[in-house]
Nucleic acid binder design. Structure first.
Length: 487
RNA sequence: GGUACCUUGCCCGAGUGGUUAGGGACCGGUCUGCAAAACCGGGGACAGCGGUUCGAAUCUGCUAGGUACCUCCA
């Protein structure tokens, strides 16, 4: 039975959905004002893994992942200005044009990484009306106040009736003494009050009418609102990066409790950060490498391009709650490991069944399920697959045999865990099938010619064929009585 | 300063109080006209110092080092 680590209780808990057979899951998506970097791949892949596994164990899942395209304030020279508006002015584009541009690029990157699209991908900008209604609810309950056209959460009042800080483990008094001076501080009763609605400055491009002012929603509002709209007042799982725990998710909890009178989320899940030289990879440190840079290899820290599947495998090789340190060396190791797995998968398809099995290939499914049930322990799943790969190779080498029943079972388990759950694509020969067949036949023919040359001890011809193919990027393997090749 | 977390072999990276994680690199072997690749096998570890325990990498205390959040962040 699936156990997941709930940040709220700081321990692993058995997962029991609110509604039998159904799971509602919300994950914080990207803010679309720049290209996605490696850090963005982590939650996408982590919760993609969860999404896939939940479906595997029989749940119907509604997976909501938002697009943030309004509201985030910047805290530099242009205080109070919407990030997207700022970028838009810089590039002389419509704000929605920027949003569309980066959303498209995000989608493309995610598809490359084998991340399945969520069931619903709502935009914050498309839910202004709902957000206004949600704010009004909080006002009606008395947990918010209006100040100079903006609406703020009355955290002190809220904290009297509810537990503010239960997710991040903070208490109000700590927050009082530590919160820095921010824009609009004078409008707020307390420094720790956060904006639910912000009045737009005159030069602000993205703004909407509301009962309080022409402005935009506070940056925690969209998740409370859209989660509630699409998953209900209460739902099962809310995920996101650890860096969102405070204040973002804490504020979300407060907003939802204030408006609804009860918690919305039952299991909070947080993936850890990707680090680079031990430091978090993030926008603010300006130490990030975009996914496109990985795919093309165009970055000074990269020794070569890395395929999307290598990136995915690299992330899955570590547990989602651990930090994972990026380096070109670690990525190369992941690449080779993935190649080994891919090779074993290909060989598995070619194995010939025998009358009996002389090697134990059973139990793989149970072991992999056990690892996944233990808070999505993908590294353990992978280690089991490597063990299985060794058995496959032994059979392939003719040093063991496998029965037809065992073989069918092994094939099924590999397909399920490698392709369906880990989401690794094993065939790198994309494109139309006819094309691939013809191409494959041509290379086979060349290597058959080489084999003949070898048999005639015509080394010059055989080496010429091999060397030229290698130069074109092929790997040629001489086998006992034949050959294998890959690109 | 407050809060939380981390420290595993050459590198990456799992881990339940007692039994092999796994991958990469390296070394040895198989194969081979040569080569490459592939495959098989192998060694090595738990930051330091105490404590609990029959037994601790795993629990506990201290020390050292590091990270994250407290401000936009995946």
């Amino acid at each position: 039975m699936l156990q997941i680590y709930n940040t709220l209780t700081r321990q692993k808990e058995y997962f029991r959905p609110l509604n039998k057979g159904l799971v509602g899951m919300y994950v914080c998506g990207p803010t679309v004002y720049g290209d996605a970097h490696l850090g963005h791949a982590r939650p996408a892949i982590t919760f993609d893994l969860l999404y896939r596994y939940l479906q595997y164990i029989g749940y119907k899942v509604r997976y909501v992942r938002n697009i943030t395209d309004v509201g985030h304030l910047e805290h530099d020279a242009d205080e109070g200005e919407d990030k997207i508006a700022k970028k838009a002015r810089l590039e002389q584009l419509e704000p929605m044009e920027v949003v569309q541009y980066y959303t498209n690029r995000y989608h493309h990157d995610m598809e490359q990484l084998g991340v399945l699209p969520p069931s619903i991908e709502p935009h914050a900008s498309g839910h202004i009306i709902e957000q206004i209604a949600f704010i009004q609810k909080i006002l009606d309950k008395g947990y918010a106040y209006i100040s100079n056209g903006s609406v703020y959460m009355d955290v002190e009042k809220y904290a009297k009736d509810y537990h503010y800080g239960k997710l991040s483990g903070r208490n109000l008094q700590d927050i009082v003494t530590e919160t820095r001076e921010l824009d609009g501080q004078d409008e707020k009763k307390h420094s720790y009050d956060f904006a639910l609605w912000k009045k737009a400055a005159p030069e602000h491009i993205m703004h909407w009418p509301s009962p309080w002012s022409e402005g935009f929603p506070g940056w925690h509002m969209e998740c409370s609102t859209m989660g509630c709209k699409y998953l209900g007042e209460q739902f099962d799982i809310h995920g996101g990066g650890m860096d969102l725990m405070f204040p973002h998710h804490e504020a979300e909890i407060a907003q939802s409790c204030a408006a609804l009178g009860h918690d919305s989320v039952r299991y909070w899940m947080h993936n850890n950060m990707i680090t680079i030289a031990g430091k978090k990879m993030g926008k603010s440190y300006n130490n990030f490498i975009t996914l496109e840079q990985f795919f093309t290899g165009k970055h000074e820290l990269l020794t070569k391009p890395f395929s999307p599947m290598t990136i995915r495998f690299f992330i899955l090789m570590a547990h989602y709650r651990s930090t994972v340190d990026f380096s070109s060396e670690a990525l190369e190791a992941a690449e080779k490991g993935l190649a080994r797995l891919t090779e074993a998968y290909t060989r598995l398809q070619k194995l010939q069944p025998a009358a009996t099995s002389t090697i134990d290939t059973g139990g793989l499914k149970e072991k992999c399920e056990e690892a996944m049930d233990d808070d999505l322990n993908s590294p353990i799943v992978i280690s089991h697959l490597f063990d299985s790969a060794r058995a496959i190779n032994t059979i392939y080498d003719g040093k063991a045999t496998i029965s037809s029943a065992d073989l069918e079972q092994l094939k099924a388990v590999w397909k399920t865990f490698v392709i369906d759950i880990l989401g690794l694509k094993m065939n790198n020969s994309a494109g139309n099938e006819q094309h691939a067949e013809a191409y494959k036949g041509a290379v086979d023919m060349l290597l058959e010619l080489r084999l003949k040359a070898k048999q005639n001890k015509d080394w010059a011809t055989s080496d010429t064929i091999r060397d030229r193919l290698i130069k074109l990027g092929f790997n040629i393997k001489d086998m006992k009585d034949g050959f294998e090749w890959s690109l």
